[in-house]
């Protein structure tokens, strides 16, 4: 991807990390400070990948279920429109996995039909055992996406992570992948992920965090901030159940103050306003939902006090 620079964050790495670390500590006490500012009118909100000058938009795109459409031409073309909307509105990180059926192949199909994909930050996973099968799978993924190399290769659900991490370290050194990471979801194996984060040189981690599941605030998010690891958040809507649960309720009167016109924006803004979060990856198969999600890139985001209000409001419903 081309490195997209915005004027949103004019802070040094040290000050960002310092701010994140202290914000993490304050989060535990329920009073952390905001660490993100409004974007300039047409600039999407971005966050830096710790330890680099590279920034990525704070809203990415997941592909679990939504892009697994098999060979259906009609559904593939519909997904191409969704991905087109994603890039049109300033999107960057697209995340997938060999576990997601035909998603990687469909993403490759869609990318082949999209012109303004220069902001693409390609992220997939290795999801198998053994070095040889891992290597084969990662090469196959690159072919499916139609890429020479990925921006980010993650180890899916920590599966055979010791083996794959050795491969990925070597690949990163040789320039075959730009960043390496590890994932989990549904709140599983946080303890194991924490151990790996503490002992291994990861660039990214991915786990679940949303307004109803804030377990990650306790240890993973502060640790990521402390270690300078970028954080991708999956399941920001708990796979849609949050929206299904709350859509019959009105948004709070003050939702307009943080430019939330719907619950999707409300939940996404909560997630990406955590200072240790680099990017959230909601998944959708609909253009109108993609527009809602991507509008979050234009800010504003809630500050710490507003985040607390958001939690209290949702917990009251």
């Amino acid at each position: 991807m081309s490195e997209k620079q915005t004027s949103v964050f004019n802070l040094s790495r040290r000050s960002i990390l310092g701010g994140i670390a202290s914000a993490g500590a304050m989060a535990a006490a329920g009073q952390f400070a905001p660490s993100i500012a409004l974007a300039q009118p047409d600039s999407p909100l971005t966050r830096a990948i710790p330890g680099t000058d590279e920034r990525i938009p704070i809203i990415g795109m997941g592909s679990w279920i939504t892009f697994n459409v098999g060979a259906s031409q009609k559904l593939r073309d519909e997904r191409a429109k969704v991905l087109q909307t994603f890039f049109d509105m300033g999107g960057g990180l697209v995340d997938s996995s060999p576990m997601y059926g035909s998603s990687e192949e469909v993403i490759g199909y869609c990318l082949g039909r999209i012109k303004n994909r220069q902001t693409l930050f390609s992220a997939t996973k290795v999801w198998t055992v053994s070095k040889s099968m891992g290597t084969r799978q990662m090469k196959a993924s690159a072919e499916l996406w139609g890429l020479e190399k990925f921006d980010l290769m993650q180890i899916h659900n920590l599966l055979d992570w010791e083996t794959h991490l050795e491969t990925l370290k070597a690949w990163k050194e040789n320039g075959r992948v730009r960043h390496i990471g590890m994932t989990t979801s549904h709140g599983r194996r946080h303890g194991d992920l924490e151990e790996v984060m503490g002992s291994q040189p990861l660039d990214f981690v991915q786990f679940t965090y949303n307004i109803a599941d804030r377990e990650a605030e306790k240890r993973l998010l502060p640790l990521a901030a402390d270690k300078g690891i970028a954080v991708i958040i999956n399941r920001p809507f708990q796979r849609g159940t949050l929206i299904e649960k709350f859509e019959r309720h009105p948004l709070p009167d003050w939702a307009g103050d943080i430019a939330c016109a719907n619950w999707a924006q409300f939940f996404l803004k909560f997630v990406v306003s955590h200072p240790a979060v680099t990017c959230a990856i909601p998944a959708t198969s609909r253009v109108d939902h993609m527009r809602e999600n991507m509008s979050v890139l234009k800010g504003p985001l809630p500050d710490a006090k507003t985040r607390q209000r958001m939690i209290e409001y949702v917990e009251k419903l």
């Binding site: 679990w64 279920i65 697994n68 559904l75 198969s285």
Partner: peptide
């Protein structure tokens, strides 16, 4: 853990 939608 069903990786596809009813539509698909």
């Amino acid at each position: 853990m069903i990786p596809f939608s009813p539509e698909v």
